[in-house]
Amino acid sequence: MLKVHRDICGYCGCCVSVCPEGALELIDAYLSVEENCTSCGVCAKVCPLGALEVVHEKQV
């Protein structure tokens, strides 16, 4: 599952541009994650601030 750390996110859209599934959308200052996210982690890698994290089910 993809977790958005909203306290860190600066709503820039960098992550949205690399998501192969089109699962992210920036709604002004709110980053939304849709159900088709595959937890591939590509977005978490490129986020300049480190606001995204793939959390494995066990840890939830």
Binding site: C14, S17, V18, C19, P20, G22, V42, K45, V46, C47, P48
Partner: peptide
């Protein structure tokens, strides 16, 4: 989709 190596994370 922008390839990961071709997005400038800024």
């Amino acid at each position: 989709t922008v390839p990961v190596r071709e997005i400038m994370s800024s």
